[in-house]
């Protein structure tokens, strides 16, 4: 899932400026699951903003609403009126939701309430870790299902480097060494030989390095290019 973390109240207030009518728009999917931008967070943030704006002497009219997914037009259409009534929309979705609002409502000024952090997993209650870098050319089949692109600090293809110590990465004792994990898993399954193969450098063109990406599935499209 996509994880996010709420920006500080101070930063959010700076982004909102002097706007009178603020709509805090939550998103009911990924950021709800990671407790950053769902209905509950939208309500709490709204009341914090109301209180803070009263204390500042410029009371703001803050309302909140949460849609199922800010990244799909049909859900945004449901809140068209609320969005158009607001002076500013504070989106608690990931960066995709913020941009979907900007794209769908050309006259609406929208600002982010979250920092979109990574694609990851809740490893325990209250703890999330990065797992995927969306590099466009999955190599998990070569690394025992553990991704060195997302989880090695140097995105090494053939680690571990000399900075692996007691299972952790040299950059931080709290960061597991991805290549230690890969080595442990492959050797426990008797598949160390996979680690001995040489590979040419990765194709980064299918990652962000090749420019913004797009997927077109002709079999799913309702309108074809010719039409």
């Amino acid at each position: 899932m996509i994880t996010g973390e709420q920006k500080s109240l101070e930063e959010i207030q700076t982004l909102l400026g002097e706007a009178e009518k603020v709509l805090v728009l939550g998103c009911g999917t990924c950021v709800t699951v990671c407790f950053a931008g769902g209905s509950r967070e939208a309500q709490i943030l709204s009341s914090s903003l109301r209180m803070a704006s009263k204390l500042n002497g410029h009371p703001q009219e803050v309302t909140d609403f949460t849609v199922q997914r800010q990244c799909e037009w049909e859900y945004l259409d449901e809140v068209e009126k609320e969005i158009e009534d607001a002076d500013i929309v504070l989106s608690l979705a990931c960066g995709i939701g913020v941009q979907a609002i900007a794209e769908h409502f050309p006259k609406t000024w929208v600002v982010p309430g979250l920092n979109t952090t990574f694609l990851g997993i809740p490893v325990e209650q209250g703890v999330w870790e990065e797992r995927c870098a969306a590099c466009g050319d999955c190599i998990l089949g070569l690394t025992g299902g553990i991704c060195p692109i997302a989880r090695c600090s140097k995105t090494m293809w053939k680690g571990p480097c000399g900075g692996s110590e007691a299972g952790h990465c040299e950059i931080d004792p709290d960061v597991p060494c991805a290549w230690q994990l890969i080595y442990d898993r492959l050797s426990s399954m008797g598949k160390e030989e996979v680690l001995l193969e040489l590979q040419t450098p990765k194709n980064w063109q299918v990652s962000r390095d090749g420019g913004p990406r797009k997927i077109i599935r002709e079999d799913l499209r309702l309108i074809t290019e010719e039409e």
Binding site: P201, K202, N203, W204, Q205, S207, D209, G210, G211
Partner: peptide, 13 residues
């Protein structure tokens, strides 16, 4: 220039 125009288009930028 973006590397896609050159002779190592699969490079990371």
């Amino acid at each position: 220039d973006h590397q896609i125009f050159g002779n190592h288009p699969t490079a990371k930028n």
